[in-house]
Amino acid sequence: MSDLVKNIIRFVVFILVQVYILHKVPPLHRFIVPYLYYLFILWLPFNTNRTWLMVIAFIFGLTLDYFLVTPGLHAAACVLIAYIRPFMVNLLIRQEGAEQSYGSPSIHSMGFAPYSIFVVVLTFLHHGYLVFLEWLQFGNFWYFLGKVGATTAVSLLLILITELLFYRKERYRTNAA
């Protein structure tokens, strides 16, 4: 399957899972909102142009926004992590030229520790910005801290489960291929 088709399917699946499964779960606590959809942006290929990365993130976030009737909220957070992502990849990549050898970020291509740092930092940024925008409209500072913490914890758990369930084998790309 080509990268384009694979990512289009992922786009649709992530939106549907987020809207019709994770947002339909009865609320456990007001701090806990299970977010998983932004993993789509984390899984985009290494060789995506930075400008395109932001455009895709914007469209992706806005699609979710139209389903949840919050125009702009998730789009802003998605664009932020799409902008930060290339810096993180450059900092954390294991060896010289790994971004040419492998398709996209995963445990296999980056190594467990760098990949977890990559996920944790971007998750934290995403939720921090998302809750910050919400907090500007209401709430106090403890609300902000509590919600960022709890939501990040739940998201990391969900990402861990997703990574274990859908183990992505990254083929080592050679010039011959």
Partner: peptide, 9 residues
């Protein structure tokens, strides 16, 4: 893009 998204919001 940020300005666009925030203006929507």
């Amino acid at each position: 893009l940020q300005v666009l998204a925030l203006s929507f919001l």
